[in-house]
Nucleic acid binder design. Structure first.
Length: 374
DNA sequence: CAGGTC
DNA sequence: GCTGG
């Protein structure tokens, strides 16, 4: 009966869950009212951002001591203090204005499928596709509407195993609006199963960045850019820089990169990414995430009519607020942490030599970025 | 058009 | 080249 609940005392400037849960890293979190609902591992989790920090609770029963607190710290990458090149004014300003973004550490398998779905796609549709895949997983908990007008507003489901995913057919996926990605899903599931299933994906975490990307790219629907996304958010490869037109555009504008946005050949991709990595330093992947977010916000503001100046804290996708209630009994989100994290710190600090990344690019970095230990 | 891949 | 906003 003991519900796991507590609060992570972190400032919104360090972690802003409204941003990181809907900006295109992870796709199965949903917000009802002020509460975010999602799944981390086998935990059905509710989160609420308060002034004091992020309140959390686990709503599926059996986890009185699941180490949820330390899992969340890992999930939101809170043990990391991101390193910003000190002479990069553009980046300092961006981080100051678009604060609270983290490099999430997501489930490798879910992330792999997320970004296969991401090609030529937008967040809302990726979300519906990932919800479909998630619907094949174990039901952990369930929210019902108190009005019963709209039952089952949210089902917390563990992401299915490769074995389960491999049973999906192309027709079924196409019927679920996966489009041409249906074939990718079917082929990749079979390949992973052949390679050894879930454990094969897990072992990619311990591979070197370059090797992990190479192995990922052997799978259908995973090219260079998608592999970088998976490596960054699913495998904790901090040197990974998913390169797309948005990033090239902003680098052209703010970092004196002089590259065409289109026609990205493998050689060009490697060359550009190598230079950006040198420019942005140890946490290049996180930098990419922040600047990408900034770029999307700017392009959104451009689209809007100039006269309607909305408050920036107001979510654009605001819908009718629905009162929700947890299956069993509502969980108190206020209480202090009752979780003893006996697992201890999960993350060991290790220094990865970004210089080891092989590149054929002879050019200088775009700006001098001083490495400093914090 | 949307954070490409084959 | 799939499909929704």
């Amino acid at each position: 009966m003991n519900k796991v609940a507590g609060i992570i005392r972190v400032d919104r400037k360090v972690l802003d869950i409204d941003k990181v849960l809907q900006m295109g890293m992870t796709f199965r979190w949903r917000k009802h009212g002020q509460i975010w609902h999602g799944v981390i591992g086998r935990n059905a989790v509710q989160l609420e951002q308060k002034n004091e920090g992020v309140a959390y609770s686990c709503v599926n029963g059996d986890s009185s001591d699941s180490g949820l607190n330390s899992e969340l710290i890992r999930f939101f990458d809170l043990e990391r203090k991101y390193e910003i090149p000190h002479d990069d004014e553009n980046l300092t300003n961006a981080v100051g204005k678009y604060e609270g973004i983290r490099q999430l550490q997501l489930d490798p398998i879910e992330t792999l499928y997320s970004f296969i779905c991401s090609s030529n796609n937008h967040i809302s549709r990726i979300s519906s596709m990932m919800t479909f895949l998630g619907s094949k997983g174990d039901l952990l908990a369930q929210i019902k509407s108190d009005t019963d007008v709209e039952p089952n507003l949210f089902r917390y489901q563990a992401f299915p195993s490769i074995e389960t995913l491999a049973q999906l057919t192309e027709q079924e996926l196409r019927a679920a609006n996966f489009g041409y990605r249906a074939k990718f899903i079917v082929k990749t599931s079979a390949s992973i199963l052949e390679n050894g299933g879930n454990s094969w994906v897990e072992t990619l975490k311990s591979e070197d960045y370059v090797v992990a990307v190479e192995k990922l790219m052997t799978l259908a629907g995973i090219g260079r850019k998608v592999a970088d996304c998976i490596a960054l958010y699913g495998l904790n490869k901090r040197e990974s820089i998913p390169l797309d037109v948005h990033l090239i555009r902003l680098a052209n504008r703010d970092y004196n990169l002089k590259e065409a946005e289109k026609g990205l050949t493998p050689t060009r991709y490697e060359g550009i990414v190598a230079r950006l990595r040198e420019t942005w330093g140890r946490d290049a992947g996180w930098v990419q995430t922040v600047l990408f977010y900034k770029e999307l916000q700017l392009s959104k503001e451009k689209k809007k009519s100039p006269k309607s100046k909305r408050e920036k804290n107001k979510p654009r996708t605001e819908k009718k607020e629905v009162k929700v209630e947890v299956k069993e009994e509502p969980v108190e989100l206020q209480s202090e942490a009752q979780v003893s994290s006996r697992k201890g710190p999960v993350v060991t600090t290790r220094r990865r030599a970004a210089q080891k990344i092989k590149t054929e690019c002879d050019e200088m970095p775009l700006k001098k970025a001083k490495e400093e230990e914090f």
